[in-house]
């Protein structure tokens, strides 16, 4: 039986064009509140893996702890709620990439510690190994440290519970390999990469059950004053180099191949 807490928030739809602007409290995205948002992809994988684990271990429960602008969270939850069963804890604050991971982690750790009857010996603290916004891979470690959890794993693609209750974990390491570790049991921090599960289909029944808890959770979402912390940004810019692409048409495959091979072999 596990208490599985997934930390994850929202990010702008990856296919949107993003443009940085200078806001009152540091950099921000142009029209940030207007951009369609999604559940952060790696956090999404963590949520689906968590739900799958809970389904195989009766009595387990999944919490989703989200720090984001309340109105946006509500939109994103309309879809996420239909995927898998969970209970939401919402915090109302910025989910932008320029907020400091340390501030976000402090707010998340406080919210997690306030869960009534939280039993660390059953806790698996999950999330994406990196966000698609800040992309730092720092928040989960900081939440883990704040909760006193020193068995931590990042880039996780697989978690298996062994018959003796130990956790067998595969983490991404250099060169397309996985490191295999065995941890005696919870508590542990697991920053998920892609995992092995497809995105679950929408299930309206799950959605209805989830929404009963989600709406009150959103209503009582506490404000979280997260910002850029001690950072002073001196510049934020889009990459300017566009390449003068040479488009080559109507060249026979033999010539293209010769051209490519010469290029591949060149220093």
């Amino acid at each position: 039986m596990y208490t599985i807490i997934v930390c994850g928030s929202l990010v702008p739809d990856p296919l949107q064009t993003l443009e940085p602007i200078s806001g009152p409290s540091g950099p921000a995205l142009k029209n940030e509140m207007m951009l369609p948002a999604w559940l952060d992809p790696w956090a999404g994988h963590a949520l689906y893996e968590a739900a799958n684990l809970a389904a195989h271990h009766p009595g387990s429960k999944v919490w989703l702890v989200c720090l984001g602008p309340k109105a946006k969270l509500q939109q994103v939850m309309m879809t996420v709620a239909q995927k898998v069963p969970f209970e939401l804890i919402a915090l109302d604050g910025s989910a932008g990439g320029f907020t400091d991971a340390a501030e976000t982690a402090a707010a998340l750790a406080d919210a997690i510690s306030a869960i009534p009857g939280l039993d660390l010996s059953k806790l698996l603290l999950c999330g994406g190994w990196e966000s698609a916004s800040r992309g730092a891979g720092a928040t989960l470690q900081l939440v883990g440290e704040r909760l006193g959890i020193t068995d931590q794993f990042q880039g996780v693609d697989s978690l298996t519970i062994e018959p003796d209750g130990s956790l067998r974990i595969l983490e991404r390491v250099e060169g397309g390999k996985h490191q295999v570790s065995v941890c005696t049991g919870p508590p542990a921090v697991l920053g998920w990469a892609t995992g092995n599960l497809p995105e679950p289909r929408n299930n309206p029944q799950v959605g209805m059950a989830n929404m009963r808890g989600i709406m009150p959770a959103l209503q009582k979402a506490k404000p979280a004053a997260v910002g850029t912390g001690d950072i002073t940004f001196t510049a934020v810019s889009l990459p300017t180099q566009t390449r003068a692409t040479q488009v080559i048409k109507d060249l026979p495959p033999e010539q293209i191949a010769a051209d490519l091979v010469a290029w591949i072999k060149s220093e």
């Binding site: 990010v11 702008p12 990856p14 993003l18 940085p20 950099p27 995205l29 990439g97 320029f98 698609a132 916004s133 800040r134 992309g135 912390g229 001690d230 950072i231 002073t232 940004f233 001196t234 510049a235 934020v236 810019s237 889009l238 990459p239």
Partner: peptide, 24 residues
């Protein structure tokens, strides 16, 4: 920069690059 470290890194999955300092 001015006797202090200044770092660059990418945000939003390598879509924009920022330069910044920290006081801590």
């Amino acid at each position: 920069a001015a006797g202090q470290p200044q770092v660059s890194r990418w945000f939003y999955r390598q879509r924009m690059e920022a330069t910044f300092t920290r006081s801590t």
